[in-house]
């Protein structure tokens, strides 16, 4: 990265309540262009909520979220426009079961970006090739394995040519032998310079691909650093405790 690193995402004092439950307690984070930021932490720490707040799948209770300099919590912002620039990959894939793989991928480009059907199909097939599933273009989600579904979901997110992609525990619902194929796709994406936030406990992947790791516990960022620093010499006792459990 150059010197004048562009800030893609910035959250300022982000709070989120579910009724009385204080899930996010003032999160300040920055993500620069081309960075891969991994978020780890014990379950219930608010990792997914944090990710979902950034594209307002959950409404943040207070605080600011700046995406490429625009405060998306402002009511004047067209959130659909912002979302179309952010790819989101879910833990449970959430493919549309009534559409084939290629139809899943081209749905948003055709109806949001208004790209002609033919062109969207062409680009969709290229994306499927990229995730290694070009021969499954006309399969329905229930005819695909979990790993294949998740790769289609990644292709679907990439079809909008987003500026950044969020991954919410993309491999947690997968059988062990399918995790690799999904992580490989993500690693290639990271190598291409995509800005990514990944909630994951795949330490191997984090070591290989992440530029920074945030540790979330009880709704606060308790520690951050490069994967090597953090895994080799964690400072915060909760980080130590957490890492000792998953290593």
């Amino acid at each position: 990265m150059g010197e004048e690193r562009q800030v893609m995402i910035e959250t300022v004092d982000l709070h989120k309540y579910f009724k009385d439950h204080h899930v996010l307690k003032g999160i300040n984070a920055k993500v620069f262009k081309g960075e891969v930021v991994a978020i780890i932490g014990p379950s219930g720490a608010g990792k997914s909520t944090f990710l979902r707040c950034i594209n307002r799948l959950e409404e943040p209770s207070s605080g600011k979220i700046l995406i490429e300099g625009v405060d998306i919590t402002s009511p004047r912002v067209d959130i659909n426009k912002i979302r179309s620039e952010i790819g989101f990959v879910f833990q449970s894939y959430n493919l549309f079961p009534h559409l084939t793989a290629i139809e899943n991928i081209k749905l948003a480009p055709v109806h949001v970006r208004k790209i002609p059907e033919k062109e969207a199909e062409q680009r969709g097939l290229e994306l499927l090739k990229k995730v290694g599933l070009e021969e499954k273009a006309h399969a329905y989600p229930d005819q695909l394995s979990g790993g294949q579904q998740q790769r289609v979901a990644i292709a679907r997110a990439l079809a909008m040519q987003p500026h950044m992609v969020f991954f919410d525990e993309p491999t947690s619902a997968l059988d062990p032998e399918m995790i690799r194929e999904v992580l490989d796709v993500m690693q290639n994406l990271a190598a291409e310079g995509m800005t990514m936030i990944v909630v994951s406990h795949e330490l191997g992947f984090i070591r290989a691909a992440a530029s920074r790791v945030l540790v979330l516990a009880d709704g606060c960022i308790i520690e951050e650093g490069t994967p090597n620093e953090l895994f080799n010499s964690p400072k915060h006792p909760r980080t130590k405790e957490f890492l000792s459990k998953i290593l």
């Binding site: 799948l57 979302r83 989101f88 879910f90 749905l107 909008m160």
Partner: peptide, 16 residues
């Protein structure tokens, strides 16, 4: 509900 979320996360409007 996850189907709606997936659709909205792609930038589709509610009616879409």
């Amino acid at each position: 509900r996850a189907q709606v979320e997936a659709a909205r996360s792609l930038g589709l409007r509610p009616l879409q």
